[in-house]
């Protein structure tokens, strides 16, 4: 009767065997998600085209009208670290859409009926989307260099700026995983995500210095997570006071993860 006893015992054991089991399942789900991203490049294209439009728009259309003389660097150097954060912020919405699609298609039900690590579904989704985000960020950096963006510090700091943005992106992926699992419908997930992310991206230091904003907005626009991360990435690329912004960004990242990862796990349990 116990056809799979040997496997079962190994799988259910604690310690190293369990960790290996979780890692193996996560890897399988990650591969599945990456294959989907490559076969249906819709999300990939969407998350690349949109920030490129913003780069061109702000570099060549609005840029001339925006004064950043106080920062001591050309506007394109001010803009690009902000664009990095904008790219990952809007891109993370697709995580919610993918999660909701898995609920709707019955994929999550399949996973639930299998003797796999439950955590692998969320881990595999966020890891795959982090990989996608990394590729997109590298491409956007190249676009930035092509339109005149220059690093004013050093290569290590520039890589650091990408890492701080990716760290923040990982927290956002959990936010939108939770949204997608709670709404269970790709269209609703997209519709609900934009109003959350848009004010954070636009009422921020991403495109313009907050000093030009009305005083009632300035506090929010300076210390909200998107701005703080943009400021951290900017300091790493352009120089100036860096550590405080980096620490604030990491604090936001950890704070968001602490709230949203359990929320995502909770909605995952209730999603089917």
């Amino acid at each position: 009767m116990e056809a799979n006893t040997a496997v079962e015992v190994g799988r259910l054991s604690r310690g190293p065997a369990r960790v290996i089991g979780v890692a193996r399942d996560t890897l399988a789900i990650t591969r599945r998600n990456l294959t989907g991203l490559i076969r249906v490049p819709r999300f990939f294209v969407f998350t690349i085209i949109q920030p490129i439009i913003f780069v061109l728009l702000f570099r060549y259309v609005f840029g001339g009208a925006i004064s950043v003389t106080t920062t001591g660097v050309p506007y394109v150097d001010y803009l690009m670290p902000g664009i990095f954060v904008q790219t990952v912020a809007f891109g993370s919405i697709t995580t919610g859409i993918s999660m909701a699609t898995d609920v709707q298609s019955g994929m999550l039900e399949r996973f639930r009926s299998l003797p796999m690590a439950r955590s692998a579904v969320l881990a595999g989704r966020t890891v795959a989307d982090l990989a996608r985000t990394t590729v997109v960020l590298v491409i956007i950096s190249a676009v930035g260099f092509a339109v005149g963006f220059r690093i004013n510090t050093n290569v290590a700091s520039f890589v650091g700026s990408l890492l701080i943005v990716l760290l923040f992106a990982y927290a956002l992926l959990w936010v939108f995983s939770a949204v997608g699992l709670a709404l269970k419908d790709p269209e609703s997930a997209q519709a609900a995500s934009f109003p959350v992310i848009a004010p954070l991206v636009f009422a921020s230091s991403v495109f313009v210095p907050v000093s030009t904003m009305p005083s009632w907005l300035r506090g929010f626009a300076t210390y909200q997570p998107v701005s703080v991360t943009a400021s951290a990435a900017r300091a790493l690329c352009n120089g100036g006071p860096t550590l405080s912004w980096v620490l604030q960004s990491i604090a936001w990242t950890i704070g968001i993860l602490l709230v949203c990862a359990p929320l995502a796990v909770w909605s995952y349990r209730r999603a089917v």
């Binding site: 989907g36 299998l114 003797p115």
Partner: peptide, 21 residues
């Protein structure tokens, strides 16, 4: 329960097999 429309037949079966340990 569903299978993944973006994966091939072989990939779907291997995925389910691996997740079945």
């Amino acid at each position: 329960a569903s299978v993944d429309a973006n994966l091939t037949g072989l990939e779907n079966l291997v995925l389910v097999g691996m997740l079945a340990q």
